[in-house]
Design a protein around this nucleic acid. Structure first.
Lengths: 131, 131
DNA sequence: GATAAGGGTTCCAGTAACTGGAAGGTCAAG
DNA sequence: CTTGACCTTCCAGTTACTGGAACCCTTATC
C-alpha cells in the first residue's frame, strides 16, 4: 500500500513515517514503476507498535530497542521489563517535578489579587523576595 | 563582574547566560579593554529571576513576558496572573498525561514475568494484542 | 491529448533551549 | 616568560518531528 494508507492505518502522519525510514526504523519496499514507497501489512503492524510505544512516552531510542526485542523471538522478557521499568522511573520523576512546580506556582497564584494594581506576589516570588 | 561570577551567583552556566544574551534577554555591558562581558548586580538579579521562572517550567517566551512585566512598574497583576494560570493549566495537563502513561505501563509491567523466557505481555501490549 | 486534482517524491530549514568543543585572546601569579 | 584559568566567537549536535518548496505519478474528466 502507499504511504497515505499506511499513515491512516497506523495513525501516524506520512511525514513521521518517512522520518522513521530515514532513521532506520521501518524500511518499506519500493514500486520500481512510480518510485512510491510500498508498505506491507507487517510494516503497518510495526508502525502501530511504534505509535503505541511513543504514546507511552518511550523515546525513539527505546522504541528501537523494544522493536529489536519484539522481532527477536528468543528475547528474555526480563530485557523488555528492564526498559519499561527504567522508563516508569523516568515518568515518576517527571510527575514529581511537575507536582512540585504546580504546588509552588499554585501558592504564588493564590497570593496574587489579579487586579489592575501593580503589586504582584508572583513576580516578587520569582524575584526572590519570599512571598 | 565577569561572566563566571555572574554564573555562580545566578546558578546558571556561562553558556546559558551567553545564550540569553543572544536571544536578547540580558545584555551586559562590555569591558572595552578585554572585550569581556561585564555584569551588574541588577543583571544578576534578572538572571536569578529567569532561573527561578525556568525552574518553574515557564518557557523562555513566557519568561520574556514575565520579565517585561517585571520591569514595568505599572503592570497590572492580573496580566501576570493570567500567564501563571495558563502555565498552571499546562502543568496540570502534563501531569495527567504522565499519570495515564504511568498507569498503562505499570499494568503491562506487572503482567510481565521478567524472566529469561520470551513471552512478554509488554511487547504484546505494544503490538496491540490486549494483555 | 490536455488538464486538473490529489496523491507521491526529495531536500532544506525550523522548532526549544541549550550544550559541547575547537581555536584563540586576556589576565594574574610565579 | 610561561602556565593556567579565565574569557571570546563560531559551528555543530541534541529530540522528534513539522512545514514548505519544487517537482513527479496516477487517475478522471473534458
Amino acid at each position: 500500500m502507499i504511504i497515505g494508507e499506511a499513515a491512516k492505518l497506523s495513525g501516524m502522519s506520512a511525514k513521521t513515517i518517512r522520518y522513521y525510514e530515514d532513521i532506520g526504523l521501518v524500511t518499506p519496499t519500493r514500486d520500481p514503476q512510480s518510485g512510491y514507497r510500498d508498505y506491507s501489512d507487517n510494516d503497518v503492524h510495526v508502525l502501530k507498535f511504534l505509535h503505541r510505544a511513543r504514546d507511552l512516552g518511550f523515546s525513539v531510542k527505546q522504541c528501537r530497542e523494544l522493536l529489536s526485542l519484539y522481532e527477536d523471538r528468543d528475547r528474555a522478557s526480563s530485557d523488555v521489563k528492564a526498559i519499561a521499568k527504567s522508563h516508569l522511573e523516568d515518568i515518576g520523576r517527571k510527575i514529581e517535578e511537575l507536582q512540585e512546580m504546580e504546588n509552588t506556582l499554585k501558592h504564588l497564584v493564590s497570593c496574587c489579587q489579579g487586579d489592575d494594581r501593580p503589586d504582584c506576589p508572583i513576580l516578587s516570588g520569582l524575584a526572590g523576595k519570599d512571598s
